[in-house]
Write a protein that binds this DNA or RNA. Structure first.
Length: 172
DNA sequence: GTAAGGATTGGC
DNA sequence: CCAATCCTTACT
């Protein structure tokens, strides 16, 4: 059923609020063969706009970052190190380039492994989470406890961005 | 056109 | 510690 699918309004808010609220939500992936994978989100990171030097959108509006400038509720995927597809959800309002990186799912640790498990590719770029038949998010009716820490792998961004506690992890 | 490097992972 | 692997961005 789709009655639990999160509406666009869920994503069209402050990314630092959207990110932790995604914890415990169910990521649903329907494959071409009809099989369905349903896994709870356990780790995320918020990337916030042009100012945030760790956010790809800080480089400006380019072919790659274009989707982040759209209204929240779309998928932003990109290839890193030539082999891993990173899954992000665009947040905030139009022209407010923010996104949430999905770093971990129930039983799957690491953003690269998430992309591999979900069999993502560039065709998911710009996918609409409110209408897609192959990927969407459902409300599980609970908000797990979590902790906030600095984000991973963004030392090049410099301060204060390195220290912003924008990585959210579900507590055991 | 060319070069540098990355929101990672896994193997040595 | 470091190679894998290729797309995007920056620069000539």
């Amino acid at each position: 059923m789709n009655n639990k699918r999160l509406p666009p309004s869920f994503f069209r808010q402050e990314v630092t609020d959207v990110a932790p609220r995604l914890l415990g939500k169910i990521l649903v992936r329907r494959f071409a063969d009809g099989s369905v994978l349903r896994l709870a989100i356990t780790e995320v990171e918020a990337y916030r706009g042009m100012e945030d030097r760790a956010c790809h959108a800080s480089k400006g509006r380019t072919t790659r970052t274009e989707v982040m400038f759209h209204n929240g509720g779309l998928v932003y995927v990109y290839l890193i190190y030539g082999m891993y597809w990173m899954l992000n959800f665009v947040s905030g309002a139009e022209n407010e380039p923010t996104a949430v990186l999905i770093r971990g799912l129930e039983g799957i640790s690491g953003p690269g492994r998430v992309g591999r498990a979900l069999q993502l590719d560039k065709s998911f770029y710009g996918e609409d989470l409110s209408t897609s038949e192959r990927i969407w998010i459902e409300d599980a009716g609970q908000q797990p406890k979590y902790t906030a820490t600095p984000r991973i792998g963004i030392n090049y961004a410099g301060e204060p961005w390195i220290s912003m506690p924008w990585r959210f992890v579900v507590e055991k």
